[in-house]
Amino acid sequence: MTLSGNQKRQMKSAARLFAVQALYQMEQTGQTVDRVRVEFEDHRFGEEFDTHTMAEGDTPLFRKLIEDAVNHQAAIDQATDRALVAKWPIARIDPTLRALFRAAGAELMQSATPPKVVIVEFVDVAKAFFPEGDEAKFANAVLDHMAREVRPEAF
Rank of each mutant, 00 (worst) to 15 (best):
H52Q: 13
R35N: 14
I119F: 03
V117D: 15
L65E: 00
R148K: 10
G5A: 15
M146F: 11
E149W: 07
S4Y: 09
A141S: 13
M1C: 01
V36Y: 10
V85R: 14
L143N: 01
R63Q: 05
M54K: 12
A104V: 03
R44Y: 09
T2Q: 15
I119R: 09
F130H: 09
V125D: 02
E48G: 00
D94T: 07
A126C: 02
I93F: 02
I76E: 05
A15I: 05
T80L: 02
P95V: 01
F45A: 11
H145E: 12
Q78D: 12
A154S: 14
T59N: 07
T32F: 04
K127G: 06
F155A: 13
F62G: 01
V125I: 12
F101I: 00
D42V: 01
L3N: 04
H145T: 14
T29W: 00
N6I: 09
A14Y: 09
D58Y: 12
V150Q: 07
E48F: 01
G105L: 03
T29M: 07
F129L: 01
A147C: 10
R151Y: 02
R82I: 00
G30K: 12
D50C: 10
P131W: 07
A74W: 02
L143W: 12
F62H: 07
P152M: 00
P89I: 04
P60K: 06
T51G: 15
A14F: 14
K64V: 00
K87S: 13
G30N: 09
H43V: 01
T53F: 00
F122T: 05
K127L: 13
R92A: 11
R98C: 06
T59Y: 10
M146P: 10
I66D: 04
K116G: 03
T59W: 08
F129H: 15
E67H: 12
G30E: 07
N140A: 13
L65C: 02
M1V: 11
V20R: 06
L17K: 05
M54R: 14
D68H: 04
A128H: 14
D134T: 10
V125A: 03
D68M: 11
L97N: 03
T32M: 07
R148F: 01
R92Q: 13
E39V: 11
A91Y: 01
E67N: 14
G5T: 10
L97T: 02
A139W: 08
E121F: 00
K116F: 11
G5H: 07
R9Y: 08
T32A: 10
L61P: 01
D94N: 14
Q21A: 11
V20I: 01
P115M: 00
A83C: 13
I90E: 08
L65P: 06
S111N: 04
G105D: 08
L23Y: 06
E47A: 15
A15S: 11
R9S: 09
E149L: 10
E27A: 13
Q78R: 09
D34Y: 11
L84D: 04
D124C: 04
D94E: 14
Q78H: 03
R37F: 08
M11C: 08
H72C: 05
F130Y: 15
I66K: 01
H43N: 14
L108K: 06
L65Y: 02
D34A: 12
T113R: 10
A91S: 15
